[in-house]
Amino acid sequence: MYLAKIYVTYKPSILDPQGEVIKSALHRMDYAGVQTVTQGKYFEVKLQATDVDSATAETQSFTESLLINQNTETYRFDLSLVADEVDV
């Protein structure tokens, strides 16, 4: 079993309004050194796959099909092998 940790953010060319609001609030709180804030989405998905290559392909497929808007968002993900959960 694999665990996919998927991080979704706006593409660099897209304005991130929530990130701008957070940055503005931080500046008002005297955190003047904050240059940029990027807000995004985070998903954890456990999936059965025979190997890391098939887990990678499946994660890319469902992320691009469902989890992101390909016009405005980009993503990255990490995969890790996890033990199967056993009910006791």
Rank of each mutant, 00 (worst) to 15 (best):
S65G: 12
D53G: 08
G33S: 09
T50Q: 13
K5S: 15
Y7W: 00
E64S: 03
Y7G: 05
L66H: 06
Q70N: 12
V82C: 07
T74F: 01
F77S: 14
P17A: 04
I14F: 12
D51S: 04
R28W: 04
D53F: 12
T50S: 14
A4Y: 00
D51E: 04
Q60N: 14
E58M: 06
E20S: 10
V45L: 05
F77D: 15
T72F: 13
G33C: 01
S80C: 07
I22H: 06
V86Y: 08
M1Q: 13
K23M: 02
T72K: 08
D78E: 14
S65Y: 04
A25Q: 07
V21N: 12
F77V: 13
T56K: 10
K46T: 15
E73T: 12
V34L: 01
L81E: 14
V21L: 13
V45P: 02
A32G: 14
V88N: 14
R76Y: 01
D78M: 05
V86H: 07
V52R: 06
T56V: 03
V86R: 08
M1R: 06
K11P: 00
E64N: 02
R28T: 12
L47T: 05
L15Q: 11
V21Y: 07
Q18S: 03
S80L: 06
E20V: 10
V37W: 02
R28K: 15
Y7M: 05
K41I: 10
L3M: 08
A49C: 06
L3Y: 01
L15A: 11
L26A: 01
E58N: 07
